[in-house]
């Protein structure tokens, strides 16, 4: 019975693919968290501020890096809103 076989084959394929997709999704989430997660951005910002206080970067470099971080924060919030 081709219909049943097809159904079984598809179910099997789905069962095999699902964990793979979950991993992909997880990786995507982690990447997004890494890029747009507020906690991460906050830590990056603190690190940036420490670098400024240690005089490892100039005020100008700090401003540029801070602007980039804020952009990431906004992007993260936008993505969060879309979902």
């Amino acid at each position: 019975m081709p219909i049943i076989e097809t159904y079984l084959a598809l179910t099997l394929a789905k069962a095999l693919a699902e964990p793979f997709c979950m991993v992909i999704e997880k990786i995507r989430d982690m990447a997004e968290e890494e890029l747009y997660g507020e906690d991460k951005i906050k830590q990056d910002l603190l690190e940036l501020q420490m670098k400024l206080e240690m005089e490892e970067i100039t005020e100008e470099e700090y401003m540029m890096a801070e602007a980039a971080l804020m952009e990431r924060l906004e992007e993260g919030r936008r993505r969060g809103g879309e979902e």
Binding site: K51, E53, M54, E55
Partner: peptide
């Protein structure tokens, strides 16, 4: 001292 502290924290 703060600079040393920041170095550790980073």
């Amino acid at each position: 001292w703060l600079k040393s502290g920041f170095k550790l924290l980073t």
